[in-house]
Design a protein around this nucleic acid. Structure first.
Lengths: 224, 224
DNA sequence: TTCAGTTTCTGAACACGTTCAGAAAAGCGC
DNA sequence: GCGCTTTTCTGAACGTGTTCAGAAACTGAA
């Protein structure tokens, strides 16, 4: 018996299924990854995978976590170099998109598998919260570490939550982006950040400020 | 032979399938509507439905058209009474949401069935263009019929396209809205329109105007 | 070591959407 | 009405995710 085999047999099997699924998702996409295929490869029956993961859908949750952890690993080192708020946001958005590239060829399959509000693994569900807490943390870090801006507190504190949703929207755009190398998504991000930097000072205007805060709060309320 | 039976047999069968599917979608949702169930009800074999509709997914296209035509029928009479641009937009958005209510219970199923970019019936696909042209026409009508505003032309002409996407986003929010009677979605719409009316004049500012036009153009480019 | 209790897995079954060879029906020119 | 072509439909088959009764493997206390 190898020295490092701790945990129960179940945990080991679960991990084997997890890593085989992640690899197959990346190589073959969601649809072409079949339960029976995974089971054959691992020398077990199809039903066995359902013992460890309630459904094929649940395996995507593992993919979320994997992507978000890579996102953090990619973004944090770069955040050290920038002080401007917009530039820091750009870093988080850009590195986030980078993590999606391996799944580009099959992005639509994952989208439709993940998007149903009934699904326990939809991005806004409670079950997905741990994964998206990572991204929210990144945005909070980007804001907190920026040179002092003239944001009012009510707007500032609602931004990370809204930015996570903006990031999900950008990813949605990315899925539908058919341009070479998804350059249109990158362009949109650049232009949207420019626009944001132009209008952010306006968020201090009396008429605008309250409306912005309200909309941000409502938008944020959609997450479970 | 009845007097009004024109068309070929195929057209009549296709129509029978269509209306049975729309009724079942409304009553039972997408998942619980099975091909075999429809076929039994209509006294035909399952394969027959596939002859008329390439896939179950394609039946949703019929639902799109149905919803959009009801949308137009609901919005147009009300547009006669309003002259303010924001109020006219509100009418189009509100009546659009109204049409979704019958499908509320199963909205998630339809979303995940419709959302894949690979699917021929995703809302941004060429195949969906006829349905969404209706909504785009409604928004264009809302803008054109409004009292003169101070919009610049480059922004004005890109608005209908962007508003259709805004409408899709609002519908996305609606799908995830768990509040009683989807009141949060209505509230968000109200507040977003208020915000829009506060910032729309700012779109004339030199620095902002170009950025707005660029972002609108990019956002619109996502539609096939 | 033994054995009872728990965890893990098997293998068959089910309902589903879809495909397709070929049968049946419809339509049409004569 | 006849014969031929085209349209429409059948019925069986396939592969899919999922379920579940019961078998097997594992675990820990006696």
């Amino acid at each position: 018996m190898p020295a490092e085999v701790r945990h129960t047999k179940g945990e080991r099997t679960r991990e084997r299924i997890r890593s085989a699924a992640l690899r197959s998702f990346r190589e073959n996409g969601y649809d072409a990854t079949t339960i029976r295929g995974l089971a054959d490869e691992l020398g077990m029956s199809a039903g066995a995978t359902n013992y460890h993961f309630a459904s094929k859908n649940h395996l995507i949750q593992e993919l979320y976590l994997d992507v978000q952890e890579r996102h953090r690993a990619a973004a944090q080192p770069l955040l050290g170099d920038a002080t401007d708020l917009i530039e820091r946001l750009r870093i988080v958005f850009e590195t986030g998109l980078d993590q999606l590239e391996p799944y580009r060829a099959h992005a639509g399959e994952f989208l439709s598998a993940a998007v149903s509000p009934r699904s326990p693994i939809n991005p806004l569900s409670v079950e997905s919260a741990p994964a998206f807490a990572i991204v929210e943390g990144l945005f909070a870090e980007a804001i907190d570490g920026a040179a002092p801006t003239r944001l009012t507190d009510d707007v500032r504190e609602r931004m990370p939550d809204a930015l996570v949703l903006a990031h999900l929207l950008l990813a949605l755009f990315w899925v539908y982006d058919t341009s070479e190398g998804r350059q249109r998504t990158r362009l949109l991000l650049d232009r949207a950040l420019r626009l944001l930097s132009a209008v952010l000072p306006l968020a201090r205007l009396p008429l605008v400020r309250g409306a912005v805060a309200e909309v941000l709060a409502l938008v944020g309320s959609i997450r479970a």
